[in-house]
Each structure stands twice: as structure tokens, then as C-alpha cells.
Amino acid sequence: MASVDKVTPMPPGRVRLGSIMPLSSVAARRLILFFALVAAWEFTAEFLVNEFWSSRPSEIVMRLFSMLVDGTLWRHTSITVLEAFAGLLLGAVVGTPLGIWLANAPKASETADPFIMGLYGLPRVALAPLFILWFGIGLLSKIMMSFTMVVFVFLLNSREGVRTVDPDLVDLMRSMRAKSLYRARKVLIPAIVPWILASFRLGIGLSLIGAVVGELVGSSRGLGWYIQNAGGMLDTTGVFTGLVVLMVIAMLANQMIALVEARVLRWR
């Protein structure tokens, strides 16, 4: 009967497919995608587009190696990472308590909301020249740039996190006469940890943007400066090398957050 065939859960051929192919592992699939992209790029540079315009992976690898040997890689990378990381941390430390406070002060939150959203919507990269003026061409102006990029993420996320705390859990704590500090420790903080981690994820890229834009506008070190400098000398390989390093930093940082999430959010 035709209807009996339809009930068969899955054709046997399909069941086996996944287990035979190495494609079943994410790592394998990612590696394949990576090499495919690199090969396509290399091919394009070889046969289609002059490498002057878009460089090529082999050139970039060689540049990376020479930068590693002469210490310029560390010199520029360390400073950019420091700026971005400091800005990210400062954003978390300032934004999270502010968000928690606003969630508990609806009047203040309501009043400030349009202004917060206005500042949030402002293309904050445009603040860079101002920040160079205010904070100098040193570290501080870049830290402040990445701070302004990320602080709203932490503020808005933690505010939303507090708002979505299950009111039953708070009532339950109150019904057992739990003090507010205890309630914060057992309910509020665990409830917003996922939101804070999500903010970190979003903040990684934003804080790097802040730091690099700051460096583009005024500095003598850092990956932003390196890219700017290479661009000025029509050194596309230099530009792409800087970009690749930035991308690797973002990927590594993201991976670190993923590890923390896996440990801290086991209950989900």
C-alpha cells in the first residue's frame, strides 16, 4: 500500500549519508569553506584582477611572517587590542549598572529614553576628531572611542534583561522574606548574565571599530594606523594584512566568549 511507504521515517540512504561524509563535523566544513575562499582569492589575483587592487593570500601570509619577525605585528596588535579591550570593559562596568538602575527606575528610564536612543543612533565614529581634540592622540582617546561604541549595548541589554526577569521568582523570594541583596545574588544577577555575555559578543566588533577609527584619525601606532599608513603608500597587501589581523582578533575573542557561555550558561 502506498500509505505504508509514506510512514517510513527516513530512507536508509539518507541516514547513512551524514556518517560517511567528513562534512558532518562543523570544524571540517569550516576548514573547507576557508580554503575555498582563500583559493578563490588566490585564483582571482593570479588570473582575473591585478593583485595591486586586492592583494593575494600568499602575499599576506608572507607579510604577516615578516611583521612577526621584526616585531611590528606585536607592536600594532597589542596596542589596538589594549584599546579595544579597555573600552569594552569600561563599557560593561558603566553600562550594566546604569541599565539595571534604569530598569528599576521607570520614571528616569522613560525620561531619558529618547536621549539614550538618540545617542545610540548617532554614528559615533564621527566623534573621533572631537575625542582626539579632547583626549589627545594617545591611548585615552581610543579607549573612549571604543567605550562610546559599546556602552549603549551594555546599557540597553542589561535594562532589557532586568525587565524580563520572571516576576514569579521575585515574588517567591519575597514570600520567603529574602533581603534585596540576596534577591540580587540569586535572581537578578543570574538572570542578566546571558544578556551581559551577549553584549560582550556584540561589543567585540564594536570596540574594535572604535579603537581603529580612533587610530585612523590620529595616532602613531596600532592596526588602524598601520592600515592607514599602508593605504597611503598604495600598499594593498599591508591594508589587507591589517584587516586579516583584526578579523582574527575578533574571531578569537568571540571564541573566548563562547567558552565562557558554555561554562556559565549550562542551565539553559
Binding site: D168, L169, D171, L172, P190, A191
Partner: peptide, 9 residues
């Protein structure tokens, strides 16, 4: 409570 209201974490 009628709902269990356990702390999920």
C-alpha cells in the same frame, strides 16, 4: 506557588 517558580540557573 501554583507555578513551580524554580530558579532555572
Amino acid at each position: 506557588f501554583q507555578k513551580d517558580a524554580l530558579l532555572p540557573w
